[in-house]
């Protein structure tokens, strides 16, 4: 058993698409709560309290969305009060809260995804689609730190020559632009040299091979199957309206049945899957450590 982070990148990426899809399709309050709980559990199990500030910012966003909606949406039968002659309805507030919760859940999931999916993993997944584009992508990714370093070197050289004074703002701006300009000239020439060097070593003469750190093991297949099964069950419930909600004119949630229970169960398992795997790995590590 491996954690989601150490599984094959395709599995990791598909997991995050699968877990965010249901909440983007349906703003059912219970479904949103499950998703949000799963996303937060994953964040805290992996990084502890390191993301509190980002989460608070997200929370402010939720409240903003929840407050803005009733100002523009006046449908709904339960009028709470009037603001400037416009009715503020409970349904509009509920819709705003659910939309905000959806935003919050999706943002939290993608926060975890950004931490897990490093650039080499994206290249591993999308390299299959186009070898040329993934080569370009990986070159550009490498150029970013290279140019930053080169810009720093140019800045030091300019300062050494006495050309770069950071006294006044226009002076600073002009100096910064000159540094940028020098870097650009160097970068373009360097790019041509890189291309020539590539060609001299036989780029484009045959099939490109790539070093891939990730192998697709049986465990990855099993995990992927489980994820897809849970997604299919959830979508069954959503598309047959076993789990559904309408906000206007009145807040109505679908009747609970067996299918609804199954949907919630499947989505709960899907949402807490990575947390379970992470915790499992941590426990294993703990016991392995104490044995040594």
């Amino acid at each position: 058993m491996k954690s989601l982070e150490r599984s094959h990148p395709t599995v990791t990426l598909l997991y995050f698409l699968a877990v965010t899809l249901p909440v983007m399709l349906c703003m059912e309050p219970l479904l949103l709560c499950i998703s949000l709980a799963g996303a937060l559990a994953l964040l805290f199990s992996r990084t502890g309290g390191r993301n509190i500030r980002t989460l608070l910012y997200f929370l402010a966003l939720l409240l903003l969305i929840a407050l803005v909606n009733p100002l523009f949406q006046h449908d709904g039968v339960t009028v709470l009060f009037f603001l400037n002659g416009n009715p503020v309805t409970w349904e509009a507030i509920a819709f705003g809260l659910c939309a905000g919760a959806m935003t919050l859940a999706v943002l939290c999931w993608f926060l975890s995804m950004s931490q897990m999916m490093t650039t080499d993993k994206y290249l591993c997944v999308f390299g299959a689609l186009s070898p040329k584009l993934s080569l370009m992508l990986s070159m550009a990714l490498r150029f970013v730190p290279l140019f930053t370093k080169r810009m720093h070197a140019v800045r030091l050289a300019q300062r050494g020559l006495g050309l770069y004074r950071d006294g006044t703002l226009p002076d600073k701006l002009r100096g910064e632009l000159r540094v940028f300009s020098v870097t650009v000239t160097w970068a373009l020439e360097n790019g041509i040299h890189t291309a020539d060097s590539m060609e001299a070593r036989g780029y484009g003469t045959g099939r490109r091979t790539a070093y891939a750190e990730y192998d697709f093991h049986a465990w990855d297949g099993a995990l992927l199957a489980l994820i897809l099964l849970m997604l299919a069950l959830t979508l069954c419930g959503l598309l047959t309206d076993a789990v559904a909600v309408t906000f206007y004119p009145a807040l109505v949630r679908a009747e609970r049945g067996v299918l609804a229970a199954l949907t919630y169960a499947a989505y709960t398992l899907l949402s807490f899957l990575p947390t379970l795997l992470t915790v499992q790995e941590k426990i294993k590590w703990h016991f392995l450590q104490s044995k040594i």
């Binding site: 550009a140 970068a187 790019g191 291309a195 484009g204």
Partner: peptide
């Protein structure tokens, strides 16, 4: 859009120049 790009035969110099421009705009 990207599919249309991949079909064309692009010289490696052009390819690298475009990645240089990408890196510059990211900076």
């Amino acid at each position: 859009f990207l599919c249309g790009f991949d079909r064309r035969k692009t010289g490696s110099r052009r390819l690298v120049l475009v990645s240089v421009m990408i890196a510059l705009s990211v900076l």
